[in-house]
Design a protein around this nucleic acid. Structure first.
Length: 581
RNA sequence: GCUGCUGUAACUCAGCUGGUAGAGUACUACCUUGGUAAGGUAGAAGUCACGGGUUCAAUUCCCGUCAGUAGCUCCA
């Protein structure tokens, strides 16, 4: 057989490759456990999986055995042969093979669908294809994990066993992928957060993070930056209460659409709710007085702490918590201001993400099943978002049915240094809240009109954003965010006074400094400071004291050699001012 | 919330088939005054997540609860 090159950069090729891999895995499982019932086995972003119904509990201990069987199937170099059957025959065929899930899948296919199967050796699977030509092309394949997954993703259905795997055209590529996973594990913000003493979780507050002194420095710096950028762009800042009457949440529509995610409480005889979103507070703020069309656009920002009852199984470090702070803003405007306001927010988000060196892409999320408002309103809002994007030829992809219940949104998915993406910023156009709260302004015609509103966040949530930053920078933060910017280490106790004096100079310049004058060896102190991911380590000994210098090491660039203290301070202040990463 | 796995010192973990606990790190004291990733000695430190049950005896076995975790679902 001719040895053709596999173009793994091509998405379709990669997909077919992983899909064929999943057939090989299912084939191996069927060989080992003939009673196993197959459900579905697609290719996914970094590999593939297959859902299997089997009484025997597969564990990772079974992987070597399954992989051995998979290798055998690969080296069997079976051709993947496609054939089609009429609907009834297809059902009959799968019934005969005792594959009830496949029968259900076929029954649910539209009448006119061509029902195809793929055969490799003695293994046949219902499958639309396409596939690779033969199993021998899958050179490197590895099982990753096994977990439960509901048949068709519905928790009312039976839980099946989902085996995850990945595969590559060469062993080198597989090894590189494994190495990348290892690197991600080292960067896990939960691990680094603990090592650097940034935040903590306690059993007493599941999903409620505690920010520790060093974590608060990062948080406060981010917020200071955020305020400064908002001031520049004509935003005013407000702060609204955490607890508001239950009635308010009926008005806003949260009661109907968000009740299960909310926490409730009583005050005297009254029913109150803890806010899961900031908008109703902002609505009340708006309603306190009359506005003229001349007041618009009106931009009101709020660092708003919200509480949401997330499922216990969904909690994940700082990335998914039950209380978080949205860097929210509500912009009220006239219809003719919509486009420029949306573009203004897009520019704002772009500026912030670029500062951290994040790449990102935009998704337009459209009307979900559970939503309020009319089709026309949704069309209007969705079109407005599209037009703003199209006017600047900003690329985006469409995410059908993923909008908020009150309006469509633009979601900003940012990519970190390991190529993983996270949804952070969103811009949501909302015709509903202004109606529900009966917001008005007086137009040039002297009549009352309804303002248009957008909700938007840039960081998304401070907590999640900090989690992403930790992983993106592997704890080696840009200097302006670093909890400890400089740590001075003395070679022996003799230099303690000089070290303390130098530290004071740095502190007076506004730097965050620590000193380590303990009676320990320099190698030991250095190791500790490096583990703490201090931005700059300055060693002080005989030479430095005589020359008024520091011997420096940067967490990002390694050894920097000796530098005069005054110049070091000036350099650092410059680095902070420019917010270099 | 569902399914699997896990919960032992401040941290990372060992403790086979039941006989009330150990290592390394960190911490404290002393010795060592050392120039770029761990100097030495000693000490203190645990209601083995919590609540039941089985047993002469439970960290170990069983049940439940709580929490963490990998997924499913959901989301900033």
């Amino acid at each position: 057989m001719a040895k053709e090159k596999i173009n793994f950069e091509d998405e379709q090729v990669r997909h077919d490759f992983r899909h064929t891999s999943s057939h090989i895995m299912a084939h191996a499982v069927k060989n080992l456990w003939p009673e196993a019932k197959l459900a579905i086995g697609p290719a996914i972003e970094n590999g593939f999986y297959y859902d299997i119904d089997l009484d025997y509990k597969i564990t990772e201990a079974d992987f070597p055995k399954i992989q051995k069987e998979m290798k055998r199937i690969v080296s069997g170099n079976h051709k993947l042969e496609r054939f089609e059957l009429p609907r009834e025959e297809a059902i009959h065929y799968m019934e005969e093979k005792k594959e009830p899930y496949k029968v259900e899948l076929i029954r649910d296919l539209p009448e006119d669908t061509i029902i195809s199967f793929y055969k490799q050796g003695d293994f046949v699977d219902l499958c639309a294809g396409p596939h690779m030509e033969h199993t021998g092309q899958i050179k490197a394949i590895k099982l990753m994990s096994v977990a439960g997954a509901y048949w068709r993703g519905n928790e009312k259905n039976k839980m099946l066993q989902r085996i995850y795997g990945t595969s590559f055209p060469t062993q080198e590529e597989l090894d590189a992928y494994i190495a990348r996973l290892e690197e991600a594990k080292l960067r896990d913000h939960r691990k680094i957060g603990k090592e650097m003493d940034l935040f903590a979780m306690f059993d007493e507050g599941p999903g409620f993070p505690f920010f520790l002194p060093k974590g608060m420095i990062i948080r406060n710096e981010l917020e200071a930056f955020w305020r400064q950028e908002h001031r520049k762009r004509g935003y005013d800042e407000i702060r609204t209460p955490l607890i508001l009457s239950e009635e308010l949440w009926h008005t806003s529509g949260h009661w109907d659409h968000y009740q299960n995610n909310m926490y409730f409480t009583k005050i005297d005889e009254g029913d109150f709710a803890i806010k899961p979103m900031n908008c109703p507070g902002a609505m009340l703020t708006y309603k306190r007085k009359m506005y003229s069309y001349r007041d618009f656009p009106m931009r009101m920002a709020e660092m708003g702490q919200v509480h949401r009852h997330e499922l216990s199984g969904a909690l994940h470090g700082l990335m998914r918590v039950r209380t978080f702070t949205q860097d929210d803003a509500h912009i009220f405007m006239l219809p003719e201001q919509v486009k420029s306001e949306i573009l203004g927010v897009i520019e704002f988000i772009d500026h912030v993400y670029n500062l951290f060196g994040f790449k990102y892409h935009i998704e337009l999320s459209t009307k979900p099943e559970d939503s309020m408002g009319t089709e026309e309103e949704w069309d209007l809002a969705t079109t407005a978002l599209k037009e703003a994007m199209d006017s600047k030829s900003i690329p985006y992809i469409i995410n059908e049915g993923d909008g908020a219940f009150y309006g469509p949104k633009l979601d900003f998915h940012l990519e970190d240094s390991l190529g993983r993406t996270w949804q952070c910023g969103t811009i949501q156009l909302d015709f509903q809240m202004p109606q529900r709260f009966d917001l008005t302004y007086v137009g040039a015609d002297g009549e009352k009109h309804r303002p248009i509103m957008i909700h938007r966040v840039i960081f998304g949530s401070i907590e999640r954003f900090i989690g992403i930053l930790i992983e993106h920078f592997a704890g080696k933060f840009p200097l302006w965010l670093a909890p400890v910017q400089v740590k001075l280490l003395t070679v022996t106790e003799k230099f303690a006074d000089y070290a303390l004096e130098t530290a004071q100079k740095l502190e007076e310049a506004g730097l965050r400094v620590e000193t380590d004058i303990r009676n320990e060896k320099i190698g030991y102190k250095l190791r500790e400071a490096r583990n703490e991911r201090v931005s700059y380590i300055g060693v002080i000994g005989e030479r430095e004291m005589e020359n008024g210098t520091l011997t420096l090491r940067s967490s990002k660039e390694g050894e920097l050699g000796e530098m005069e203290v005054g110049r070091f301070i000036a350099d650092l202040l410059e680095e902070i001012k420019e917010k270099r990463c």
